[in-house]
Design a protein around this nucleic acid. Structure first.
Length: 570
DNA sequence: ATAGGGTTAG
Protein backbone atom coordinates (compact mmCIF):
# COMPACT_ATOMS: atom_id res chain seq x y z
CA UNK A 1 0.00 0.00 0.00
CA UNK A 2 2.79 2.38 0.88
CA UNK A 3 4.65 1.63 -2.35
CA UNK A 4 1.47 2.26 -4.30
CA UNK A 5 0.87 5.42 -2.27
CA UNK A 6 -2.51 4.21 -1.13
CA UNK A 7 -3.14 6.44 1.89
CA UNK A 8 -2.98 4.55 5.17
CA UNK A 9 -5.62 5.96 7.44
CA UNK A 10 -6.64 5.51 11.03
CA UNK A 11 -9.33 3.16 9.82
CA UNK A 12 -6.84 0.99 7.94
CA UNK A 13 -4.71 0.63 11.04
CA UNK A 14 -7.65 -0.11 13.20
CA UNK A 15 -8.75 -2.96 10.93
CA UNK A 16 -5.21 -4.33 10.60
CA UNK A 17 -4.63 -4.33 14.34
CA UNK A 18 -7.95 -5.92 15.09
CA UNK A 19 -7.26 -8.56 12.46
CA UNK A 20 -3.85 -9.45 13.96
CA UNK A 21 -5.30 -9.68 17.42
CA UNK A 22 -8.07 -12.02 16.41
CA UNK A 23 -5.55 -14.24 14.64
CA UNK A 24 -3.57 -14.64 17.87
CA UNK A 25 -0.80 -12.44 16.49
CA UNK A 26 -0.87 -9.75 19.10
CA UNK A 27 2.86 -9.14 18.80
CA UNK A 28 2.37 -8.17 15.18
CA UNK A 29 -0.47 -5.93 16.27
CA UNK A 30 1.87 -4.15 18.67
CA UNK A 31 4.33 -3.66 15.83
CA UNK A 32 1.50 -1.99 13.93
CA UNK A 33 0.84 0.25 16.92
CA UNK A 34 4.41 1.51 16.58
CA UNK A 35 3.69 2.16 12.93
CA UNK A 36 0.67 4.22 13.97
CA UNK A 37 2.77 6.45 16.19
CA UNK A 38 5.40 6.95 13.51
CA UNK A 39 2.66 7.98 11.12
CA UNK A 40 1.03 10.23 13.69
CA UNK A 41 -2.11 8.14 13.61
CA UNK A 42 -3.64 8.46 17.05
CA UNK A 43 -4.90 5.09 18.26
CA UNK A 44 -8.35 5.19 19.78
CA UNK A 45 -10.22 3.16 22.30
CA UNK A 46 -11.06 0.47 19.74
CA UNK A 47 -7.40 -0.12 18.95
CA UNK A 48 -6.46 -0.28 22.63
CA UNK A 49 -9.32 -2.59 23.31
CA UNK A 50 -8.33 -4.85 20.43
CA UNK A 51 -4.77 -5.04 21.75
CA UNK A 52 -5.87 -5.73 25.29
CA UNK A 53 -8.38 -8.23 24.05
CA UNK A 54 -5.67 -9.89 21.99
CA UNK A 55 -3.41 -10.30 25.01
CA UNK A 56 -6.25 -11.72 27.04
CA UNK A 57 -7.07 -14.16 24.22
CA UNK A 58 -3.52 -15.39 24.25
CA UNK A 59 -3.79 -15.83 28.01
CA UNK A 60 -1.17 -13.15 28.53
CA UNK A 61 -3.14 -11.65 31.39
CA UNK A 62 -0.17 -10.25 33.27
CA UNK A 63 1.05 -8.59 30.13
CA UNK A 64 -2.40 -7.20 29.52
CA UNK A 65 -2.40 -5.74 32.99
CA UNK A 66 1.06 -4.28 32.54
CA UNK A 67 0.21 -3.00 29.10
CA UNK A 68 -2.71 -1.18 30.47
CA UNK A 69 -0.76 0.40 33.29
CA UNK A 70 1.93 1.45 30.92
CA UNK A 71 -0.47 2.37 28.22
CA UNK A 72 -1.34 5.81 29.34
CA UNK A 73 2.14 6.81 30.49
CA UNK A 74 3.86 5.35 27.45
CA UNK A 75 1.30 6.63 25.11
CA UNK A 76 1.77 10.18 26.23
CA UNK A 77 5.54 9.85 26.33
CA UNK A 78 5.61 8.53 22.79
CA UNK A 79 3.16 11.06 21.58
CA UNK A 80 5.10 13.89 23.14
CA UNK A 81 8.37 12.56 21.72
CA UNK A 82 6.81 12.39 18.28
CA UNK A 83 5.27 15.77 18.80
CA UNK A 84 1.84 14.35 18.25
CA UNK A 85 -0.20 16.93 20.09
CA UNK A 86 -2.00 15.58 23.15
CA UNK A 87 -5.33 17.09 22.44
CA UNK A 88 -8.64 17.24 24.09
CA UNK A 89 -9.63 14.36 21.84
CA UNK A 90 -6.75 12.17 23.00
CA UNK A 91 -7.70 12.69 26.61
CA UNK A 92 -11.29 11.98 25.89
CA UNK A 93 -10.37 8.67 24.27
CA UNK A 94 -7.93 7.71 27.00
CA UNK A 95 -10.41 8.48 29.75
CA UNK A 96 -13.18 6.60 28.03
CA UNK A 97 -10.82 3.68 27.56
CA UNK A 98 -9.99 3.55 31.26
CA UNK A 99 -13.62 3.79 32.26
CA UNK A 100 -14.73 1.00 29.98
CA UNK A 101 -11.98 -1.21 31.35
CA UNK A 102 -13.18 -0.77 34.93
CA UNK A 103 -10.25 1.53 35.66
CA UNK A 104 -12.17 4.60 36.71
CA UNK A 105 -9.54 5.61 39.26
CA UNK A 106 -6.97 5.79 36.49
CA UNK A 107 -9.45 7.81 34.49
CA UNK A 108 -9.75 10.32 37.33
CA UNK A 109 -5.96 10.55 37.43
CA UNK A 110 -6.13 11.44 33.73
CA UNK A 111 -8.69 14.11 34.56
CA UNK A 112 -6.02 15.68 36.75
CA UNK A 113 -3.67 15.54 33.79
CA UNK A 114 -6.27 17.42 31.76
CA UNK A 115 -6.45 20.22 34.29
CA UNK A 116 -2.65 20.49 34.48
CA UNK A 117 -2.45 20.77 30.71
CA UNK A 118 -5.33 23.24 30.68
CA UNK A 119 -7.39 20.90 28.57
CA UNK A 120 -10.95 21.69 29.56
CA UNK A 121 -12.92 18.48 30.02
CA UNK A 122 -16.31 18.42 28.34
CA UNK A 123 -19.55 16.57 28.79
CA UNK A 124 -18.21 13.48 26.96
CA UNK A 125 -15.36 13.10 29.41
CA UNK A 126 -17.62 13.63 32.41
CA UNK A 127 -20.13 11.16 31.03
CA UNK A 128 -17.40 8.56 30.62
CA UNK A 129 -16.31 9.10 34.22
CA UNK A 130 -19.85 8.89 35.54
CA UNK A 131 -20.47 5.77 33.52
CA UNK A 132 -17.24 4.28 34.83
CA UNK A 133 -18.34 4.83 38.41
CA UNK A 134 -21.77 3.35 37.76
CA UNK A 135 -20.17 0.36 36.04
CA UNK A 136 -18.03 -0.25 39.08
CA UNK A 137 -21.11 -0.07 41.31
CA UNK A 138 -19.83 3.12 42.89
CA UNK A 139 -23.25 4.71 42.65
CA UNK A 140 -22.99 7.03 45.62
CA UNK A 141 -19.74 8.42 44.29
CA UNK A 142 -21.41 8.85 40.92
CA UNK A 143 -24.25 10.76 42.53
CA UNK A 144 -21.80 12.98 44.39
CA UNK A 145 -19.80 13.57 41.25
CA UNK A 146 -22.97 14.42 39.34
CA UNK A 147 -23.99 16.99 41.95
CA UNK A 148 -20.52 18.47 41.86
CA UNK A 149 -20.80 18.86 38.09
CA UNK A 150 -24.14 20.63 38.37
CA UNK A 151 -23.27 22.85 41.31
CA UNK A 152 -19.84 23.79 40.03
CA UNK A 153 -21.25 24.29 36.54
CA UNK A 154 -18.37 22.21 35.22
CA UNK A 155 -20.39 21.04 32.28
CA UNK A 156 -23.85 21.01 30.80
CA UNK A 157 -25.22 17.52 31.30
CA UNK A 158 -26.75 15.93 28.22
CA UNK A 159 -29.10 13.04 27.62
CA UNK A 160 -26.28 10.53 28.12
CA UNK A 161 -25.45 12.01 31.51
CA UNK A 162 -29.03 11.66 32.62
CA UNK A 163 -29.38 8.15 31.28
CA UNK A 164 -26.28 7.19 33.22
CA UNK A 165 -27.68 8.71 36.39
CA UNK A 166 -31.05 7.03 35.93
CA UNK A 167 -29.30 3.73 35.28
CA UNK A 168 -27.33 4.37 38.46
CA UNK A 169 -30.49 4.96 40.46
CA UNK A 170 -31.94 1.69 39.19
CA UNK A 171 -28.74 -0.19 39.94
CA UNK A 172 -28.71 1.33 43.39
CA UNK A 173 -32.07 -0.21 44.04
CA UNK A 174 -30.99 -3.62 42.83
CA UNK A 175 -28.30 -3.53 45.47
CA UNK A 176 -30.96 -2.94 48.10
CA UNK A 177 -30.12 0.72 48.58
CA UNK A 178 -33.33 2.45 47.60
CA UNK A 179 -33.27 5.80 45.87
CA UNK A 180 -35.66 8.18 47.61
CA UNK A 181 -37.50 11.37 46.80
CA UNK A 182 -34.24 13.34 47.12
CA UNK A 183 -32.43 11.15 44.57
CA UNK A 184 -35.27 11.51 42.10
CA UNK A 185 -35.80 15.22 42.78
CA UNK A 186 -32.14 15.93 42.14
CA UNK A 187 -32.27 14.32 38.72
CA UNK A 188 -35.71 15.75 37.91
CA UNK A 189 -34.54 19.25 38.79
CA UNK A 190 -31.49 19.03 36.54
CA UNK A 191 -33.62 17.67 33.72
CA UNK A 192 -36.01 20.60 34.15
CA UNK A 193 -33.16 23.12 34.16
CA UNK A 194 -31.94 21.64 30.88
CA UNK A 195 -35.38 21.96 29.31
CA UNK A 196 -35.69 18.17 29.12
CA UNK A 197 -39.06 18.45 30.78
CA UNK A 198 -40.62 15.43 29.09
CA UNK A 199 -37.85 13.23 30.41
CA UNK A 200 -38.40 14.78 33.82
CA UNK A 201 -42.06 13.74 33.68
CA UNK A 202 -41.09 10.25 32.56
CA UNK A 203 -38.89 9.97 35.60
CA UNK A 204 -41.65 11.39 37.81
CA UNK A 205 -44.03 8.72 36.52
CA UNK A 206 -41.48 6.03 37.19
CA UNK A 207 -40.92 7.38 40.68
CA UNK A 208 -44.63 7.51 41.51
CA UNK A 209 -46.06 4.47 39.76
CA UNK A 210 -43.20 2.01 39.80
CA UNK A 211 -41.42 2.94 43.01
CA UNK A 212 -44.37 4.28 44.97
CA UNK A 213 -42.49 7.41 46.01
CA UNK A 214 -44.58 10.60 46.33
CA UNK A 215 -43.22 13.89 45.07
CA UNK A 216 -42.79 16.66 47.62
CA UNK A 217 -43.05 20.44 47.38
CA UNK A 218 -39.50 20.63 46.00
CA UNK A 219 -40.23 18.15 43.20
CA UNK A 220 -43.33 20.17 42.24
CA UNK A 221 -41.43 23.45 42.37
CA UNK A 222 -38.77 22.10 40.04
CA UNK A 223 -41.36 20.88 37.57
CA UNK A 224 -43.37 24.11 37.66
CA UNK A 225 -40.19 26.12 37.14
CA UNK A 226 -39.23 23.92 34.20
CA UNK A 227 -42.66 24.29 32.58
CA UNK A 228 -42.71 28.06 33.09
CA UNK A 229 -39.29 28.46 31.54
CA UNK A 230 -40.57 26.70 28.44
CA UNK A 231 -43.66 28.89 28.33
CA UNK A 232 -45.90 25.86 28.94
CA UNK A 233 -48.24 27.84 31.15
CA UNK A 234 -51.27 25.54 30.98
CA UNK A 235 -49.29 22.58 32.20
CA UNK A 236 -47.66 24.69 34.89
CA UNK A 237 -51.03 25.74 36.28
CA UNK A 238 -52.22 22.13 36.03
CA UNK A 239 -49.23 21.07 38.12
CA UNK A 240 -50.03 23.79 40.63
CA UNK A 241 -53.60 22.50 40.87
CA UNK A 242 -52.43 18.91 41.15
CA UNK A 243 -50.08 19.90 43.93
CA UNK A 244 -52.91 21.48 45.91
CA UNK A 245 -55.19 18.49 45.19
CA UNK A 246 -52.75 16.00 46.67
CA UNK A 247 -52.46 18.16 49.76
CA UNK A 248 -49.10 19.82 49.22
CA UNK A 249 -49.31 23.57 49.88
CA UNK A 250 -47.40 25.85 47.56
CA UNK A 251 -44.77 27.72 49.54
CA UNK A 252 -42.98 31.03 49.09
CA UNK A 253 -40.64 29.50 46.54
CA UNK A 254 -43.51 28.17 44.45
CA UNK A 255 -44.93 31.68 44.26
CA UNK A 256 -41.55 33.18 43.57
CA UNK A 257 -41.18 30.87 40.59
CA UNK A 258 -44.56 32.03 39.28
CA UNK A 259 -43.92 35.72 39.95
CA UNK A 260 -40.57 35.51 38.23
CA UNK A 261 -42.00 33.66 35.23
CA UNK A 262 -44.84 36.19 34.83
CA UNK A 263 -42.44 39.10 35.08
CA UNK A 264 -40.06 37.66 32.52
CA UNK A 265 -43.01 37.31 30.13
CA UNK A 266 -43.87 40.94 30.74
CA UNK A 267 -47.10 39.98 32.53
CA UNK A 268 -46.50 42.13 35.57
CA UNK A 269 -50.22 42.35 36.35
CA UNK A 270 -50.45 38.60 36.67
CA UNK A 271 -47.38 38.67 38.88
CA UNK A 272 -49.12 41.21 41.15
CA UNK A 273 -52.13 38.89 41.14
CA UNK A 274 -49.99 35.99 42.24
CA UNK A 275 -48.63 38.10 45.09
CA UNK A 276 -52.21 38.92 46.19
CA UNK A 277 -53.05 35.21 46.29
CA UNK A 278 -49.87 34.65 48.21
CA UNK A 279 -50.86 37.22 50.81
CA UNK A 280 -54.38 35.74 51.06
CA UNK A 281 -52.81 32.41 51.88
CA UNK A 282 -50.71 33.98 54.58
CA UNK A 283 -47.44 33.49 52.76
CA UNK A 284 -45.10 36.43 53.30
CA UNK A 285 -43.31 37.67 50.19
CA UNK A 286 -39.57 37.77 50.67
CA UNK A 287 -36.63 39.48 49.04
CA UNK A 288 -36.76 37.23 45.99
CA UNK A 289 -40.43 38.05 45.41
CA UNK A 290 -39.80 41.79 45.49
CA UNK A 291 -36.69 41.54 43.36
CA UNK A 292 -38.58 39.59 40.71
CA UNK A 293 -41.35 42.19 40.61
CA UNK A 294 -38.91 45.10 40.50
CA UNK A 295 -37.06 43.39 37.69
CA UNK A 296 -40.35 42.90 35.86
CA UNK A 297 -41.13 46.63 35.97
CA UNK A 298 -37.55 47.55 35.06
CA UNK A 299 -37.63 45.30 32.00
CA UNK A 300 -40.69 47.22 30.80
CA UNK A 301 -39.01 50.52 31.53
CA UNK A 302 -41.66 51.38 34.14
CA UNK A 303 -39.17 52.86 36.52
CA UNK A 304 -41.60 54.83 38.67
CA UNK A 305 -43.52 51.64 39.46
CA UNK A 306 -40.26 49.84 40.14
CA UNK A 307 -39.38 52.60 42.57
CA UNK A 308 -42.75 52.24 44.35
CA UNK A 309 -42.12 48.51 44.87
CA UNK A 310 -38.62 49.32 46.02
CA UNK A 311 -39.97 51.73 48.63
CA UNK A 312 -42.59 49.32 49.89
CA UNK A 313 -39.91 46.68 50.18
CA UNK A 314 -37.79 48.97 52.33
CA UNK A 315 -40.93 49.90 54.32
CA UNK A 316 -41.41 46.23 55.15
CA UNK A 317 -37.94 46.13 56.60
CA UNK A 318 -36.24 44.29 53.78
CA UNK A 319 -32.79 45.53 52.84
CA UNK A 320 -32.28 45.80 49.06
CA UNK A 321 -29.40 43.64 47.89
CA UNK A 322 -27.18 43.62 44.82
CA UNK A 323 -29.91 41.89 42.77
CA UNK A 324 -32.35 44.69 43.54
CA UNK A 325 -29.88 47.39 42.52
CA UNK A 326 -28.77 45.49 39.47
CA UNK A 327 -32.36 45.30 38.17
CA UNK A 328 -32.89 49.02 38.72
CA UNK A 329 -29.59 49.78 37.06
CA UNK A 330 -30.59 47.71 34.07
CA UNK A 331 -33.93 49.52 33.94
CA UNK A 332 -32.35 52.97 33.87
CA UNK A 333 -29.81 51.87 31.27
CA UNK A 334 -32.46 50.32 29.03
CA UNK A 335 -34.54 53.49 29.16
CA UNK A 336 -31.38 55.50 28.39
CA UNK A 337 -31.57 57.44 31.66
CA UNK A 338 -27.82 57.36 31.98
CA UNK A 339 -27.46 59.98 34.75
CA UNK A 340 -29.90 58.16 37.00
CA UNK A 341 -28.11 54.92 36.18
CA UNK A 342 -24.73 56.39 37.09
CA UNK A 343 -26.08 57.77 40.37
CA UNK A 344 -27.47 54.37 41.23
CA UNK A 345 -24.21 52.70 40.25
CA UNK A 346 -22.36 54.91 42.74
CA UNK A 347 -25.04 54.39 45.37
CA UNK A 348 -24.36 50.65 45.34
CA UNK A 349 -20.90 51.22 46.80
CA UNK A 350 -22.18 53.83 49.26
CA UNK A 351 -24.67 51.29 50.63
CA UNK A 352 -21.78 49.01 51.42
CA UNK A 353 -22.63 46.53 48.68
CA UNK A 354 -19.94 45.15 46.41
CA UNK A 355 -20.02 45.90 42.71
CA UNK A 356 -19.73 42.74 40.71
CA UNK A 357 -19.23 41.75 37.11
CA UNK A 358 -22.96 41.96 36.38
CA UNK A 359 -23.39 45.55 37.57
CA UNK A 360 -20.29 46.55 35.62
CA UNK A 361 -21.54 44.80 32.49
CA UNK A 362 -24.90 46.54 32.80
CA UNK A 363 -23.37 49.97 33.32
CA UNK A 364 -20.87 49.50 30.47
CA UNK A 365 -23.68 48.48 28.15
CA UNK A 366 -25.69 51.51 29.21
CA UNK A 367 -22.81 53.88 28.50
CA UNK A 368 -22.24 52.39 25.05
CA UNK A 369 -25.95 52.71 24.29
CA UNK A 370 -25.82 56.48 24.71
CA UNK A 371 -22.53 56.70 22.85
CA UNK A 372 -20.27 57.34 25.85
CA UNK A 373 -17.59 54.98 24.57
CA UNK A 374 -14.76 56.58 26.52
CA UNK A 375 -16.60 56.32 29.83
CA UNK A 376 -17.47 52.70 29.02
CA UNK A 377 -13.84 51.85 28.40
CA UNK A 378 -12.76 53.62 31.60
CA UNK A 379 -15.26 51.52 33.53
CA UNK A 380 -13.87 48.41 31.91
CA UNK A 381 -10.36 49.37 33.09
CA UNK A 382 -11.66 50.16 36.56
CA UNK A 383 -13.22 46.73 36.68
CA UNK A 384 -9.82 45.21 35.90
CA UNK A 385 -8.14 47.26 38.61
CA UNK A 386 -10.68 46.05 41.15
CA UNK A 387 -9.71 42.51 40.31
CA UNK A 388 -13.07 41.68 38.74
CA UNK A 389 -12.60 39.24 35.91
CA UNK A 390 -14.58 40.14 32.80
CA UNK A 391 -16.72 37.26 31.61
CA UNK A 392 -18.09 36.34 28.18
CA UNK A 393 -21.00 38.68 28.70
CA UNK A 394 -18.60 41.59 29.30
CA UNK A 395 -16.91 40.96 25.98
CA UNK A 396 -20.17 40.62 24.12
CA UNK A 397 -21.36 43.92 25.55
CA UNK A 398 -18.11 45.64 24.62
CA UNK A 399 -17.96 44.17 21.11
CA UNK A 400 -21.56 45.13 20.48
CA UNK A 401 -21.01 48.58 21.96
CA UNK A 402 -18.00 49.27 19.80
CA UNK A 403 -19.73 47.97 16.67
CA UNK A 404 -22.84 50.05 17.25
CA UNK A 405 -20.64 53.11 17.67
CA UNK A 406 -18.91 52.39 14.36
CA UNK A 407 -15.67 51.31 15.95
CA UNK A 408 -15.40 48.01 14.13
CA UNK A 409 -11.58 48.11 14.06
CA UNK A 410 -11.39 48.51 17.84
CA UNK A 411 -13.88 45.70 18.19
CA UNK A 412 -11.70 43.47 16.03
CA UNK A 413 -8.55 44.19 17.98
CA UNK A 414 -10.41 43.51 21.20
CA UNK A 415 -11.59 40.26 19.67
CA UNK A 416 -8.04 39.23 18.82
CA UNK A 417 -6.89 40.17 22.29
CA UNK A 418 -9.55 37.84 23.63
CA UNK A 419 -8.24 35.08 21.41
CA UNK A 420 -4.75 35.52 22.83
CA UNK A 421 -5.97 35.43 26.40
CA UNK A 422 -7.62 32.08 25.65
CA UNK A 423 -11.00 33.39 26.63
CA UNK A 424 -13.83 31.36 25.30
CA UNK A 425 -15.03 33.16 22.30
CA UNK A 426 -17.93 31.58 20.62
CA UNK A 427 -20.42 31.91 17.82
CA UNK A 428 -22.18 34.75 19.68
CA UNK A 429 -19.07 36.90 19.43
CA UNK A 430 -18.71 36.16 15.74
CA UNK A 431 -22.34 37.02 15.15
CA UNK A 432 -21.95 40.36 16.88
CA UNK A 433 -18.88 41.19 14.79
CA UNK A 434 -20.34 40.01 11.49
CA UNK A 435 -23.45 42.03 12.17
CA UNK A 436 -21.43 45.06 13.26
CA UNK A 437 -19.15 44.89 10.23
CA UNK A 438 -22.15 44.65 7.91
CA UNK A 439 -23.79 47.63 9.58
CA UNK A 440 -20.60 49.71 9.31
CA UNK A 441 -20.42 48.95 5.60
CA UNK A 442 -17.32 46.80 6.05
CA UNK A 443 -18.60 43.85 4.12
CA UNK A 444 -15.09 42.54 3.45
CA UNK A 445 -14.55 42.12 7.20
CA UNK A 446 -17.92 40.45 7.62
CA UNK A 447 -17.08 38.01 4.82
CA UNK A 448 -13.64 37.18 6.25
CA UNK A 449 -15.18 36.46 9.64
CA UNK A 450 -17.84 34.31 8.06
CA UNK A 451 -15.20 32.38 6.13
CA UNK A 452 -13.31 31.92 9.40
CA UNK A 453 -16.10 29.86 10.85
CA UNK A 454 -17.29 28.06 7.75
CA UNK A 455 -13.95 26.51 6.92
CA UNK A 456 -13.29 23.02 8.20
CA UNK A 457 -12.56 22.09 11.81
CA UNK A 458 -14.02 25.17 13.38
CA UNK A 459 -15.17 24.45 16.91
CA UNK A 460 -18.48 26.11 16.39
CA UNK A 461 -20.35 26.08 13.10
CA UNK A 462 -22.34 29.14 12.02
CA UNK A 463 -25.82 29.07 13.48
CA UNK A 464 -29.13 30.43 12.31
CA UNK A 465 -28.32 33.95 13.51
CA UNK A 466 -24.95 33.93 11.74
CA UNK A 467 -26.67 33.32 8.43
CA UNK A 468 -29.26 36.00 9.12
CA UNK A 469 -26.69 38.66 10.01
CA UNK A 470 -24.38 37.90 7.08
CA UNK A 471 -27.36 38.07 4.74
CA UNK A 472 -28.40 41.38 6.26
CA UNK A 473 -24.88 42.64 5.67
CA UNK A 474 -25.07 41.60 2.02
CA UNK A 475 -28.47 43.12 1.47
CA UNK A 476 -27.71 46.39 3.24
CA UNK A 477 -24.59 46.81 1.15
CA UNK A 478 -26.41 45.69 -2.01
CA UNK A 479 -24.02 42.84 -2.62
CA UNK A 480 -25.96 39.92 -4.05
CA UNK A 481 -23.41 37.44 -5.42
CA UNK A 482 -23.58 34.88 -2.62
CA UNK A 483 -27.13 35.45 -1.47
CA UNK A 484 -28.66 32.50 -3.28
CA UNK A 485 -25.90 30.10 -2.17
CA UNK A 486 -26.37 31.21 1.42
CA UNK A 487 -30.11 30.69 1.21
CA UNK A 488 -29.55 27.18 -0.14
CA UNK A 489 -27.12 26.46 2.67
CA UNK A 490 -29.69 27.65 5.18
CA UNK A 491 -32.26 25.36 3.63
CA UNK A 492 -29.82 22.45 3.87
CA UNK A 493 -29.24 23.16 7.55
CA UNK A 494 -32.97 23.58 8.22
CA UNK A 495 -32.42 27.13 9.35
CA UNK A 496 -35.02 29.85 8.95
CA UNK A 497 -35.08 33.56 8.25
CA UNK A 498 -35.94 35.99 11.02
CA UNK A 499 -38.23 39.01 10.77
CA UNK A 500 -35.48 41.57 10.14
CA UNK A 501 -33.87 39.59 7.33
CA UNK A 502 -37.23 38.75 5.79
CA UNK A 503 -38.28 42.37 5.72
CA UNK A 504 -35.00 43.38 4.09
CA UNK A 505 -35.55 40.77 1.39
CA UNK A 506 -39.11 41.98 0.93
CA UNK A 507 -38.14 45.59 0.57
CA UNK A 508 -35.37 44.90 -1.90
CA UNK A 509 -37.52 42.59 -4.00
CA UNK A 510 -40.30 45.16 -3.99
CA UNK A 511 -37.79 47.84 -5.00
CA UNK A 512 -36.67 45.64 -7.89
CA UNK A 513 -33.14 45.27 -6.53
CA UNK A 514 -33.47 41.53 -6.20
CA UNK A 515 -35.06 39.04 -8.55
CA UNK A 516 -38.46 37.86 -7.41
CA UNK A 517 -37.68 34.28 -8.40
CA UNK A 518 -35.81 34.15 -5.09
CA UNK A 519 -39.18 34.26 -3.36
CA UNK A 520 -39.79 30.57 -3.71
CA UNK A 521 -36.55 29.77 -1.94
CA UNK A 522 -37.19 32.43 0.68
CA UNK A 523 -40.67 31.00 1.23
CA UNK A 524 -39.09 27.67 2.16
CA UNK A 525 -37.10 29.39 4.87
CA UNK A 526 -40.06 30.79 6.77
CA UNK A 527 -40.65 28.92 10.04
CA UNK A 528 -43.35 26.30 9.52
CA UNK A 529 -45.35 27.08 12.62
CA UNK A 530 -45.98 30.54 11.19
CA UNK A 531 -47.31 29.14 7.92
CA UNK A 532 -50.05 27.37 9.83
CA UNK A 533 -51.09 30.45 11.76
CA UNK A 534 -54.22 32.49 11.24
CA UNK A 535 -55.72 31.89 7.84
CA UNK A 536 -58.02 34.79 8.65
CA UNK A 537 -55.27 37.23 7.79
CA UNK A 538 -55.28 36.19 4.12
CA UNK A 539 -57.35 39.01 2.73
CA UNK A 540 -55.76 42.09 4.28
CA UNK A 541 -52.37 40.54 3.72
CA UNK A 542 -53.00 39.97 0.06
CA UNK A 543 -54.03 43.57 -0.34
CA UNK A 544 -50.91 44.74 1.39
CA UNK A 545 -48.76 42.52 -0.80
CA UNK A 546 -50.23 43.90 -3.97
CA UNK A 547 -49.76 47.40 -2.74
CA UNK A 548 -46.10 46.90 -1.99
CA UNK A 549 -45.11 44.49 -4.72
CA UNK A 550 -47.81 44.02 -7.35
CA UNK A 551 -45.60 41.71 -9.37
CA UNK A 552 -45.71 39.00 -6.73
CA UNK A 553 -47.82 35.99 -7.65
CA UNK A 554 -49.28 33.46 -5.30
CA UNK A 555 -46.37 31.01 -5.20
CA UNK A 556 -45.22 32.65 -2.04
CA UNK A 557 -48.55 33.43 -0.56
CA UNK A 558 -47.78 31.66 2.68
CA UNK A 559 -44.48 33.41 2.84
CA UNK A 560 -46.15 36.77 2.55
CA UNK A 561 -48.62 35.98 5.26
CA UNK A 562 -45.88 34.92 7.55
CA UNK A 563 -43.90 37.99 6.82
CA UNK A 564 -46.85 40.16 7.63
CA UNK A 565 -47.43 38.29 10.84
CA UNK A 566 -43.80 38.60 11.75
CA UNK A 567 -43.73 42.28 11.08
CA UNK A 568 -46.95 42.80 13.02
CA UNK A 569 -48.54 44.49 10.07
CA UNK A 570 -51.84 42.71 10.45
C1' DA B 1 -29.09 15.76 51.39
C1' DT B 2 -33.03 17.92 46.55
C1' DA B 3 -36.13 23.81 44.62
C1' DG B 4 -36.69 30.28 43.75
C1' DG B 5 -33.91 37.10 42.16
C1' DG B 6 -29.74 40.63 38.43
C1' DT B 7 -26.06 41.50 32.81
C1' DT B 8 -25.73 38.45 27.22
C1' DA B 9 -25.83 38.94 19.28
C1' DG B 10 -30.38 39.47 15.13
Amino acid sequence: MCALRVPVSHCTMSIAIKCCCQLYRTNDAFALLGFCFRRSIVPDVFIFNALLDGLVHEDRILEAEMFFKKLIKELFKQMCALRVPVSHCTMSIAIKCCCQLYRTNDAFALLGFCFRRSIVPDVFIFNALLDGLVHEDRILEAEMFFKKLIKGKLCEPDVVTYNTMIKGALLMEEKGCKPNVVTYSTIIDSLCKDKMIDDAFKLLKEMVFQKGISPNVITYNSLIDGLCNLGRWDEASKMLQEMVDVGISPDVQTFNILVDAFCKEGKVDEAENAIDIMLERGIVPDMVTYNALIDGYCLRGEMSKAKIIFDSMVFRGLVPDIFTYSSLLNGYCKSLKIDEAMDLFNEITRKGLKQDVVTYNTMIQGLFRVGHCGAARRLFDEMHKKGLKPNECTYRVILEGLCNNHQIEEALSMFHLMGDSKLNFDIFMYNILIDGAGKCGKLDIARLLFEDITKMECDFPPNNVTYCVILQGYLKNQYYDDVEILLHEMDGRRYSLDATTLSLFLDQIAAGLLDKTLLELIGKLVPKELVERKTACFVPCWGWCQLRAPAVNCISFCFWICTCTLLHII
